[in-house]
């Protein structure tokens, strides 16, 4: 019983940390331009495929593939913002939202065209990384080296992000812009540049999540961004959209919740858990757990 609990907990944290990586992109972009970037799930999907191609076609090491996918999606995210959102900056929020949905549909159809409708396998973990082994931490508490790798990688990325946001010049400018867009501009901050940085960082984290999910679950598919994207969005809302620690917490909480739902025999409802949470949060506390109610002035 206890051992099962621990296994599910570890599963949940590993899954949840990938949700957290993706949720960060939603929350950062929303924090700055109040846009729910519906294409973000497709950036995650693109990251997963770019990582796969780099490993299987270009035969690079998985670490290089991981970084390559992050770089690719970083550029992709910046370009998407410039083409699809920036021209609509002064239009209604609905216009930008519709544009985001358009980009999302375009990207998943493009992936369908290139990679087909069937799932594509990631190379086995033992070929690209190491043979997956279980460790016993204490009586019955099992954890695999792959889970540790996924949790540790996500944690490192989130610590770097947190440091960047808190201490660097650009990070401070990002926080200022998310608190008060116009006043940030009055400080001499080039807000267009800050928006590009935000998309770059959010998209590269989603790509990291994509490669990790590919390794963890072993398959990737053109439409994988839709469901995971919605779940990560839920995680962002749960934590309080716009809040970075909130997205981290929300992602992990959602991952754990989902795995426990599976554990108690609700596996056919596992995807419904996320949307149940989304609805409850929106009804009960729309600002989420870590959300603040500072007035947005855009």
């Amino acid at each position: 019983m206890l051992s099962n609990f621990f296994v599910q907990l570890m599963n949940g944290i590993a899954l949840g940390s990938t949700y957290a990586l993706i949720a960060l992109g939603y929350t950062m972009v929303y924090g700055i331009i109040l846009l729910i970037n519906f294409a973000h799930g497709e950036i995650f999907m693109s990251g997963a495929f770019v990582g796969l191609i780099l490993v299987t076609v270009f035969h690079v090491h998985i670490i290089i593939a991981f970084l390559g996918a992050m770089l690719f999606c970083m550029i992709m995210g910046v370009i998407i913002e410039k083409i699809a959102y920036k021209p609509l900056r002064r239009s209604t929020r609905l216009a930008a939202l519709i544009s985001a949905i358009g980009v999302s549909i375009f990207l998943s159809n493009l992936a369908n065209l290139i990679f087909g409708a069937n799932p594509t396998s990631y190379p086995p973990t033992k070929e690209i990384l190491f043979p997956v082994k279980s460790f016993e931490l204490f009586a019955g508490a099992q954890v695999t080296n792959l889970q540790i790798l996924i949790i540790a990688t996500s944690a490192i990325l989130m610590i770097i992000l947190q440091y960047f946001i808190k201490n660097t010049r650009i990070g401070k400018a990002m926080r200022a812009t998310s608190q008060d867009y116009d006043t940030a501009a009055l400080m001499g901050i080039n807000v267009n540049k800050i928006i590009s940085y935000t998309f770059a960082i959010g998209s590269s984290l989603a790509a990291a999540g994509g490669v990790l999910v590919g390794i963890y679950f072993g398959v990737v598919k053109y439409n994988m961004g839709t469901l995971v994207g919605l779940k990560a969005f839920t995680a962002a809302v749960l934590g309080g959209i716009g809040s970075i620690p909130g997205a981290m917490f929300g992602g992990i909480a959602l991952g754990i919740g989902e795995m426990f739902a599976v554990a108690i025999g609700l596996s056919s409802y596992r995807d419904a858990i996320a949307f149940g949470i989304l609805i409850i949060v929106l009804l009960v506390k729309p600002t989420g757990l870590f959300g603040t109610e500072i007035q947005k002035k855009v």
């Binding site: 200022a176 008060d180 006043t183 940030a184």
Partner: peptide, 11 residues
């Protein structure tokens, strides 16, 4: 100095 002070409240 903008109207209504507009300091960054969380910083």
């Amino acid at each position: 100095v903008p109207e209504g002070r507009r300091v960054f409240p969380l910083m």
